[in-house]
Design a protein around this nucleic acid. Sequence first.
DNA 1: CGCGTTCCAGTTTTT
DNA 2: CTGGAACGCG
Length: 733
Amino acid sequence: MTSHPLLEQLNQKQRAAVGAPEQHMLVLAGAGSGKTRVLVHRIAWLIQELRLSPYSIMAVTFTNKAAAEMRGRVEELVGSSTRAMWIGTFHGLAHRLLRAHYMDVGLPQNFQILDSDDQQRMLKRIMRSLNLDEKRWSPKQAQWFINAKKDEGLRPHHLDGYDFNERTYKEIYDAYQVACDRSGLVDFAELLLRAHELLRDNRIVREHYQRRFRHLLVDEFQDTNSIQYAWVKLLSGAGSDKEHENFVTIVGDDDQSIYGWRGAKIENIHQFTLDFPKVDTIRLEQNYRSTNTILSAANSVIANNNDRLGKELWTEGGMGEPIDLYAAYNELDEARYIASQVEAWHEQGNALQDVALLYRSNAQSRVLEEALLHARIPYRIYGGLRFFDRQEVKDALAYLRLLSNRDDDAALERVINTPTRGIGARTLEIVRDGARQRGTSLWLAAKQLATEKVLTGRAANAVLAFVDLIQQLEDETNDYSLGRQVDTVIKSSGLMAMYQAEKGEKAETRVENLKELVNACDNFDQLDRVDDEELSPLNGFLAHAALESGEEQADEHQDSVQLMTLHSAKGLEFPLVFMCGVEEGLFPSQQSLDEAGRLAEERRLCYVGMTRAMQKLVISYAEQRRVYGQEKLHSASRFIAEIPAENLHHVRMQSHRNFTTEAPNYGRFNTAASHEAFEESGFQLGQRVRHVKFGEGTVLNYEGSGAQSRIQVNFDDLGSKWLVVAYARLERC
DNA sequence: CGCGTTCCAGTTTTT
DNA sequence: CTGGAACGCG
């Protein structure tokens, strides 16, 4: 078996996983241990060596990106089409099930998917109609509540409602669900929940899929929530008395579980070993990414967590460089230091795209951007608004949804007066009331109210004109190609004209995006989409838009530094990584310190960040940082103290020249002249000083000059104090 | 109905 | 401090 081509170039553990007999498997795959490789090779092994049909394999991931990569690599390896195989995200596969069995789950054939933004708007309307105190109940919280319940597999009737809060949320959940059902709308959590209920309650359907999928492989299992776990269990047939019991392979890393806050259950990994018989556990601990120094530091940090399944990364590679630690005196200094280091890296002939700047929260990117801009270093930020999430694109999609399904209230609300066509708030109110009383969709109510003369005059005419517009658009574009259909809809609806009439750069991009949408439709190849054989091109495209909100714009081919949150860095790797703002209160975040268990997750996030680095890791923190417009004093994160000293190299504060010359550009430093005067006093910003009574500290700021000049010192034990230089008798140290 | 002003909240993100 | 949303006016 060692000579098999699929096992070549794999280490012993990887081979054990890939070449294992048919069995349940838990692959604990550390960061950079070749996890995807093992998954892909395992699938190839099942097909080529164990002679399984691709038809009997299902592979599940969390992101479309991961799913696409997996399919591509399997095809490359197997050398044939994997069309028969189900590879996709949990949501994608659930969607596929619901499309195939829409009748069994009580959905209309042309049901549509609500994204998170749609869901929130919908809730806002529901809550208005329930006359809830808007100060007290926010759609956001309601959304959070409902999704959390759905993730747990709970319907409104499962909630006891003892507690007043929960009673109200239950009422909202109930009304929301009724509205969704009436409109044929399904939110993300509903996709999973309904697919689960389908499998649970429909024996024929369940057994059909249980017979079909002999092997289930699930990636990133530490990120599964309760309903996803239940879903896998149902499909596997585990614990049931049926004759088919399928084989499940889960791959994951408990140390990289960073989505607990959105319902991921790290315990699912452990639970798996209890719920499934004879699970073979394989640990992949050999790392092919980072230096020994980085791994040793990461191992030390994560060792501070309890209840780990246990794993220690190692590498055959060398120690590499130490981890640089830069203690900035404020966030501007930190950004400037990072920019200068990136510049140095670039000047040594390295690529900018090999550098990542990682931070805990998005707000931190701004100062970094400014510094990069100033240093003329091109950069790219991950995690912006995606294509299908843009306002103008969503407007256009709403028209299309309405063409497909008139009862789609969310879509109708969005475009009935976009562009404005004389249907104001008052008219809409009447229509909403009418719909509520009659228990119908907004579309039907609007039509009836206008013909029945409940609505009169201008309002009635406007409503009827809208109804005609949609009807006529459908008739006209019925047999058009998707691209031409969308083009016509955008133009005839007046959407294009509306955005063209607006001025400014923003409006121009919007027009461009609408044109791009037509392109996207032209390029949308139904044949490529194995999932949705039964879908009309239009519905296929709409589902695609909702489930894959669009690639990050790959437009920038320019070599540029990558900026992203620690969360979005998961799964990526870079030769040079900067972890910025590693301060108590920021990372770990303040909120995580208040709640039990959250600190451990922050530490895992730190572990994820550190293990992104291949050659060199730089950690920085700022003693003083502006947060929400207020200066806050921060100390180094506890995570820094958890790194062995021998792996760290404390970088000395840079020379002062930079501050004085660049200060005006940042706008928040003292003038060059006053700075010079300050330097004559013999102190520098960021310098360590000792006071007879207060102990040691760092110079943060100063004001004035000469005899009156005062200096701000952040003392290690006492915090920050302003001292008059002439009297304080500070010593440099 | 559109525009200007005030007010308020404010981790992490995918589907 | 900032951006988004709500509110009030013409």
